[in-house]
């Protein structure tokens, strides 16, 4: 198998963002990294279908999303159980205040329907346009816009309920999450 260095380097350059997307999809760092690895293997195996000069990142995101969704259909119930891994992924963050904020946000994010979550991430964090996000998700641009709006509204509701004190430290929530992570 031959792969041009520029193609390989483009794949490597997309990895940090792919991981962030994968973690937001499946809520578990180890599974996310497995998903990224599977994505890279698929991409290399199908590199002939990638058109040089086009958007490698969008191509890889499309593959990763399709892999996640085919896996998700098999393991639907397991995917919803993400609180423990969120708590675990927060260990690395140094600032206490931000930790709590991140934690509450990630838990709220995990409660969104996956269609809305992926649309919000692609547009709001990965830097894709609505058109690119629509291509990655294989739906209409208007559908992406609608999902992003619903995601924002729902997130705001969830954070208002769970962090009524302006996203500040919420010890009850933290205690519940810590306990949940051990179960």
């Amino acid at each position: 198998m031959t792969m041009r260095p520029s193609v390989r380097d483009a794949m490597l350059a997309a990895v940090p963002s792919l991981r962030a997307f994968a973690i937001s999809l499946c809520g578990n760092v180890d599974r996310a990294d497995d998903l990224v690895q599977e994505t890279l293997l698929r991409a290399v195996a199908n590199i002939d279908s990638f058109q040089p000069g086009t958007n490698m990142s969008a191509w890889l995101f499309t593959i990763l999303r399709n892999l996640f969704r085919s896996e998700y259909r098999k393991r639907r119930r397991e995917v919803e159980d993400t609180d423990g891994s969120y708590a675990e992924s927060l260990k690395s963050h140094p600032e206490q205040q931000s930790r709590v904020e991140f934690e509450e946000f990630r838990v709220a994010l995990a409660k969104l329907p996956s269609d809305q979550r992926e649309a919000l991430i692609l547009v709001g964090a990965s830097g894709f346009s609505y058109e690119e996000a629509a291509a990655i998700c294989e739906c209409a641009v208007g559908t992406i816009k609608s999902r992003v709006n619903r995601a924002r509204t729902r997130l705001s509701e969830l954070l208002a309920i769970e962090g009524a004190d302006d996203f500040g430290p919420d010890h009850a929530t933290r205690a519940i999450l810590s306990a949940g992570g051990r179960s």
């Binding site: 483009a10 997309a14 958007n55």
Partner: peptide, 29 residues
């Protein structure tokens, strides 16, 4: 270092219309 230098900011530049990767659906299924 080489990867960083060659690739730079991969999210900002060079984004193309989604039509440019029509084969991705098949490749990932």
């Amino acid at each position: 270092q080489r990867d960083g230098a060659e690739q730079g900011s991969h999210d900002s530049g060079g984004l193309v219309e989604a039509k440019a990767f029509p084969h991705s659906k098949g490749s990932a299924s």
